[in-house]
């Protein structure tokens, strides 16, 4: 939707992770993580209610009974 395209500034550039070639390293995996982080970073907006970001992250880790999950999904 062209009306709402984003103008990308410097901070929107994906962070590159440079490592020795000899190390078997999943660069794309790190890219994915940081892309997600930069999508969400920033000053919390002006809502005056409960912030649910921690609850959402906690749900990723534990199930409804409070026990640890063993997930195999991407971030």
């Amino acid at each position: 939707m062209a009306e709402f395209d984003l103008r990308r500034g410097p901070a929107a550039t994906p962070v590159e992770v440079v490592i020795p070639v000899s190390v078997a390293f999943d660069i794309e995996a790190l890219f994915d993580v940081q892309r997600k982080v930069f999508e969400r970073l920033g000053h919390p907006s002006c809502n005056s209610g409960a912030d649910i970001r921690f609850t959402l992250e906690r749900r990723f880790i534990v199930d409804a009974k409070g026990t640890l999950r063993n997930l195999d999904t991407t971030y």
Binding site: E3, L6, G9, P10, A11, A12, G42
Partner: peptide
Amino acid sequence: HVSARVPTST
């Protein structure tokens, strides 16, 4: 920090 993203629209 300079704002990373500014919505652009007509």
